[in-house]
């Protein structure tokens, strides 16, 4: 028996639309749940003061610093490294077994649980290189963790740049590097930024890899060798050890709003960039 295409079309719309609505509902539920519980404690005082009594009272100011500084340093290290690697892989090497192995390797690395990176960072950066629990060790670990994502998304973005643009650039007497700089990177930028945004999101929300490498000190850091606590770690400790549910949710609400703001700003910047290039 054949089903009338009009019915299958209708069925497809219902299933696809239903799935989308379900996803949106779940997402909205989580966000509203956390904001509802957390927002009442969030105020200027909460954001700008130090925690007291292990976080039972007071604010979360040092953890905001930690949340900003770890991902920023991590991305400052990982972005150029990742983008250059992907440029090299896609523009300067021919497709060989070696590049396939490298690509397979990065895919595997991208799928490794973050706690493994945490352990690696602990053994290598904290112990072997004697960095101790520090901003440096934490950022380097996060950088290693997000590197595969940045390489892969950048590579996809670079490959998506039409081949004819390369041809035109070369035919006008450009070198490989000039072509990369003037044509390929600007056109791949939206894709690269997406990868960086994903990585920032992952770094901000990361707990396992950070606890092992940056520690969980509540003091405000003054050097790269000081330990810091991020909001995600703070939330984890407050909730896990039953220190303060209200402050845990307050921290979570702040975290969600921060991620939202970062994403919106990035999209706004990117749209402006695309509009300007026309």
């Amino acid at each position: 028996m054949r089903i009338n295409p009009r019915h299958t079309q209708k069925g497809a719309v219902i299933i696809l639309g239903g799935a989308t609505i379900l996803v949106l509902l779940i997402l909205a539920f989580i966000i509203i749940f956390i904001l509802e519980k957390g927002l009442p404690v969030v105020n200027l005082q909460f954001l700008s003061s130090k925690p007291r009594d292990l976080g039972r009272a007071g604010g979360i100011f040092p953890t905001i610093i930690g949340t900003i500084i770890l991902p920023v340093v991590a991305l400052l290290i990982a972005t150029p490294l990742g983008v250059f690697t992907s440029v090299y892989l896609s523009e300067y090497t021919k497709e060989t077994t070696l590049t396939k192995v490298i690509r397979f390797g990065t895919d595997c690395l991208a799928g490794i649980p973050s706690i493994i990176f945490g352990l690696f960072g602990y053994i290598f950066f904290v112990i072997t290189l004697q960095m101790g629990w520090s901003i440096l060790a934490g950022s380097l670990t996060l950088a290693v963790m997000v590197l595969p994502t940045i390489i892969r998304t950048s590579e996809e973005a670079i490959r998506a740049v039409p081949k004819v643009y390369r041809e035109v650039s070369f035919s006008l007497g450009a070198s490989g590097w000039q072509t990369v700089k003037k044509v390929i990177l600007p056109n791949a930028l939206p894709g690269i930024v997406t990868g960086v945004m994903l990585s920032i999101g992952r770094s901000i929300g990361e707990t396992a890899a950070v606890i092992f490498t940056a520690g969980s000190s509540l003091r405000i850091p003054t050097t790269a060798f000081d330990s810091v606590r991020t909001m995600a770690v703070h939330f984890y400790i407050l909730a896990r050890e039953g220190i303060s549910q209200e402050n845990a949710y307050g921290t979570a609400a702040t975290l969600i709003i921060a991620v939202l703001i970062i994403n919106l700003t990035a999209y706004w910047l990117m749209n402006r960039f695309i509009a300007r290039r026309g």
């Binding site: 004819v164 643009y165 041809e167 035109v168 650039s169 070369f170 006008l172 007497g173 056109n187 026309g278």
Partner: peptide, 29 residues
């Protein structure tokens, strides 16, 4: 080779402006 391509310019079958302004296209070379 890059020097050679500056001396021997090429127009392709499909028009391919680079995704930039008219001005920037012309001054690319």
């Amino acid at each position: 080779v890059a020097g050679l391509r500056k001396r021997v310019g090429m127009v392709f079958a499909m028009p391919v402006p680079l995704p930039m302004s008219i001005y920037e296209n012309v001054v690319y070379g």
